[in-house]
């Protein structure tokens, strides 16, 4: 089975986000594999263990993103592709990423029976790249899956729908995106870590891909980046219940203005 995993290197979930000149400051920050993408990597390795084949991990990012691919390789992925699109600067959005991923798969002749992605990246949180990529490749996709069963050509998934479960059947080739609960990612083993560096890694730049820069530049524009407002101290209402209810209604109408 040929398995592709698209992953993104993101801030460690414990990092504090700070802004500098209207941009997120990356100085001294620890980076990790986006946690949802880690589920995708784990599921890919499990599929390989079950059916044999090869797991290829693909990422788009600067040089430091290689570490995320090496970590996936330490877990058991076989090879990797890293695409540097820094030439595009800030002109990048989900549309761009999906186009570059599709072009990379084509350029590298990456055969696939299944493509796994995290359902969203914890930084941008758009949850678009997976489905967009599937559209470009003209294959079916199912997002936010929590269980995956493959039998021959038949694919059965549990899909998380806001806390409920939908069971969906489809066929290979397919793209699925991983929701929390799909699996428990393994720790990379020491031999895995020691071998990761020796696994094949292809580096591509935008020029290596058959793409028209004008067509792939972002279709969205970032106007402003700002941190959420500091949490205000809560208010505890006092007095008789009737008065509290009245005051609550008053505050909801006039202060919070939610009614």
């Amino acid at each position: 089975m040929n398995i592709l995993v698209c992953l993104k290197q993101t801030f460690d979930t414990e990092e504090k986000i700070t802004l500098e000149n209207g941009r997120i400051n990356e100085e001294g920050v620890e980076f990790v594999i986006n946690p949802y993408d880690e589920y995708a990597v784990e599921e890919a390795i499990k599929l390989k263990e079950q059916f044999g084949g090869e797991v290829t991990v693909i990422t788009i990012g600067p040089e430091r993103a290689e570490q995320a691919l090496r970590t996936a390789m330490a877990m058991g992925a076989d090879k990797g592709v890293i695409v540097d699109i820094e030439d595009l600067g800030d002109n990048v959005d989900e549309h761009t990423i999906a186009q570059v991923l599709a072009a990379t798969i084509k350029e590298e002749d990456l055969a696939f029976d299944i493509i796994l992605c995290g359902y969203m990246a914890i930084d941008d949180g758009s949850a678009q790249v997976g489905p967009r990529l599937a559209e470009l490749l003209e294959i079916p996709h199912i997002s936010t899956i929590t269980k995956l069963t493959i039998d021959g050509n038949k694919v059965t998934v549990d899909k998380d729908v806001e806390g409920d479960v939908e069971v969906i059947e489809s066929t290979l080739p397919i793209l699925v995106t991983a929701q929390q609960g799909l699996n428990e990612p393994r720790y990379p083993s020491l031999p895995g870590i020691m071998k990761a560096k020796k696994k094949p890694l292809t580096r591509l730049e935008l020029d290596d891909l058959d793409l028209d820069e004008e067509e792939i530049v972002a279709k969205t524009e970032t106007i402003e980046v700002f941190l959420p407002p500091k949490k205000q101290a809560g208010k505890i209402l006092q007095g008789e219940l009737v008065d509290q209810a009245k005051e609550l209604v008053h505050l909801l109408r006039n202060e919070a203005k939610v009614i």
């Binding site: 720790y187 020491l190 870590i193 990761a196």
Partner: peptide
């Protein structure tokens, strides 16, 4: 080194 970093990450998580 890359290996040492990965071992640190592994051991932090473990």
């Amino acid at each position: 080194t890359a290996e040492q970093k990965m071992i640190r990450k592994l051991m932090r998580d473990f």
